[in-house]
Design a protein around this nucleic acid. Structure first.
Lengths: 129, 129
DNA sequence: TGTAATTCCTACCAATTTGGTAGTATAATA
DNA sequence: TATTATACTACCAAATTGGTAGGAATTACA
């Protein structure tokens, strides 16, 4: 039950972009500020970019910036890009299981799932400014 | 953010023992009922045994049984034996970090941590009977 | 007292995930 | 057109996950 560095770094990246709403922020700047390798950040931010959470400026003075306002980003939205759906047990979205309505174990894991997701979806990037 | 099979199987084992409060239940019986390999179950139950959550009957007609009543086992107690502390981020119990009281990121992860733990500590084995 | 049933312990192993690094291509713009 | 960025592809080591194998120790019971 841990979040990988991908998810944690993705959040850090997004907070940095949120604090720099005016212009583009380059990977290099984030890397230096947060002490995370450029190459690894590059890999993580490309996930955010492909998911359409950030937009790209190429060339000189380029970098990344948010496409929405900070309060429009649920943290869950960011984490799911790098972590996938945060399901504690594989049965959560198993359409082959037809006993969900009576299974005590399913309802336990599903409750945890809903708990986690409502926590992360209840907070936005704006909460970090 | 997933629970490994160790944690999930540990819960299944404990539910089986709870349903068999009278006597000893062998790994073989659990294995056959739940379709999980004997050898893997053996490994997981030895963690529960070392942690003192179950007691052992050796030799013929032996097996395992609970040492407490089902309602005295918090699920969190069981999961932490196989999963360790369920900390989403390593900073949660990092005594070297002295910025916790002002760090927004820490307070976010810590909130998630408390959320998860209060969920799993709020339920007991008796809820599965 | 012997044997079957059971746990205990140590070691091993393959697949996947995690946390990166390296090098080159491509794109934009000053 | 040179420079500064991102984009893409490939690779890699370490840790974790999810097991398996084999034998030793313990106990019940015939």
């Amino acid at each position: 039950m841990k979040m990988s560095t991908r998810g944690r770094y993705a959040l850090i990246i997004m907070i940095n972009l949120a604090k720099n709403e005016e212009g583009y922020l380059s990977i290099k700047e984030i890397s230096e500020k947060e002490n995370i390798s450029i190459k690894y950040l590059e890999k993580i931010i490309s996930l955010l970019s492909k998911a359409g959470l950030v937009c790209v400026g190429h060339g000189k003075n380029g970098g990344y910036k948010l496409v929405k306002k900070p309060n429009e980003y649920k943290i869950g939205e960011i984490l799911r890009v790098t972590e996938g759906p945060m399901e504690p047990a594989p049965c959560i979205n198993d359409s082959n299981c037809d006993k969900k309505d009576t299974c005590e174990v399913y309802s336990f894991w599903n409750g945890l799932y809903e708990n986690i997701n409502s926590y992360v979806d209840d907070k936005t990037l704006a909460d970090f400014l």
